[in-house]
Amino acid sequence: MDEDSDAQVMLRVAAGDRKAFALLFDRYHASVARFAYRFVGDRARAEELTQDIFVKLYRNAKAYKPTAQFKTFLFRVATNHCLNEVRRGEYRVTRSTSSPADEDEKGVEAVDAQAERPDEAVAGRELERAVGEALQGMSERERAAFTMCRFEGMAYRDIATALEASEAAVKSLIHRATLAVARKVEALQAGIGPERSRA
C-alpha cells in the first residue's frame, strides 16, 4: 500500500473529509483489530478498542504531520490506547477460550504455516498455538514491538516512534520477543509441545 497515498488521505481527514476517514478505516481496521486482540484476548473488546482507536485518530487528525508515515501515526495511537487498557488490569491475553476459527482468523504471519494436507493443517495450528503462548508470556511492550515488526512489517525507527522509545530499545524488545517465540517453536519441533514446554 502506498504510504504517500495514506498521508494524503489523512490530510483530507484533518480537513474534515469523512469519506477520507472511512477509506482509512477500511484499509486498516483489520490490522488494528488484530493488534488490539493480542492485548486483551477478547474479540468483542478488541473491536471496541478498535473503534475507540479510530475515534482518537479522527479527533487527533490535525496533529498528523505528513513527514511521518501514516501507519506509524496510527500505531502510535493504537499502542498508547492498548497499553492504557492493559494497565487498567481488567484484561490479560488468554488463548484457552479461542476456537480454531479464531486462531485461523488472527493468523500467525510471523511463521509460514500454509498447509495443503490435513497433517500440515494440524501442524500449522500447533505452531500458531505455540507462537500464541509465546506472545502471551511477553511484556506488553515486547508484544507491541514484535507485532508491529513481524506482523505489520514496520521498520525499527517507525516502531520506536510508535512506542516513544529509542531504536536500540526497540531492537532489544524485538530480540527478547523473538527468542521467546523461537523457544516455543523449538520445543514444538522437538516433540515437547507448547503445553509441556512450560513444565
Rank of each mutant, 00 (worst) to 15 (best):
67 T>Q: 12
50 T>M: 01
154 M>T: 07
113 A>W: 13
162 A>N: 05
92 R>W: 01
47 E>M: 03
130 A>V: 11
118 P>E: 10
48 E>F: 03
162 A>G: 04
169 A>Q: 10
108 V>L: 09
112 D>M: 09
69 Q>S: 13
145 A>S: 05
47 E>I: 06
127 L>S: 10
138 M>Q: 01
82 C>G: 04
65 K>M: 05
88 R>N: 12
137 G>C: 10
64 Y>D: 04
34 R>K: 15
103 E>K: 09
100 P>K: 08
69 Q>W: 14
147 T>S: 13
105 E>L: 13
142 E>W: 02
165 A>R: 14
107 G>F: 06
145 A>E: 02
56 K>C: 00
163 L>E: 00
60 N>L: 09
99 S>E: 06
124 G>R: 12
53 I>L: 07
100 P>W: 03
75 F>V: 03
94 T>D: 14
110 A>I: 10
32 V>P: 01
127 L>C: 12
72 T>A: 15
42 D>C: 09
109 E>D: 08
55 V>R: 08
89 G>F: 11
93 V>P: 04
71 K>N: 10
59 R>D: 06
58 Y>N: 10
50 T>V: 03
117 R>P: 02
121 A>D: 11
120 E>A: 07
79 T>K: 00
34 R>H: 08
63 A>S: 15
122 V>G: 06
50 T>D: 01
52 D>Q: 14
152 E>W: 05
91 Y>E: 02
49 L>Y: 01
71 K>M: 06
112 D>K: 14
69 Q>L: 12
167 E>V: 05
88 R>S: 10
95 R>P: 00
86 V>Y: 03
46 A>E: 03
37 Y>F: 15
165 A>P: 04
48 E>M: 08
165 A>T: 02
77 V>R: 03
85 E>A: 03
156 Y>S: 01
65 K>L: 11
143 R>T: 11
140 E>C: 06
71 K>Q: 10
105 E>I: 15
141 R>G: 02
48 E>W: 01
104 D>C: 10
118 P>T: 06
38 R>C: 09
127 L>M: 15
139 S>M: 08
59 R>Q: 14
49 L>H: 00
137 G>K: 09
113 A>C: 10
158 D>N: 11
163 L>A: 01
45 R>Q: 08
163 L>T: 02
36 A>G: 07
36 A>E: 11
131 V>I: 08
49 L>G: 00
136 Q>R: 15
55 V>Y: 00
45 R>N: 03
134 A>W: 02
58 Y>F: 13
112 D>H: 11
155 A>F: 13
38 R>P: 00
161 T>Q: 13
81 H>D: 08
129 R>D: 07
125 R>E: 09
39 F>H: 03
127 L>K: 09
46 A>F: 07
99 S>R: 05
155 A>G: 08
167 E>Y: 03
66 P>L: 06
59 R>M: 07
61 A>I: 01
56 K>I: 04
65 K>G: 05
166 S>R: 06
57 L>I: 05
53 I>R: 03
46 A>R: 06
46 A>T: 00
99 S>N: 07
102 D>R: 00
96 S>L: 12
151 F>T: 13
124 G>E: 01
93 V>L: 15
119 D>L: 13
86 V>D: 06
144 A>P: 00
163 L>S: 02
160 A>E: 08
107 G>M: 04
139 S>N: 04
107 G>S: 14
114 Q>N: 13
68 A>R: 12
55 V>C: 02
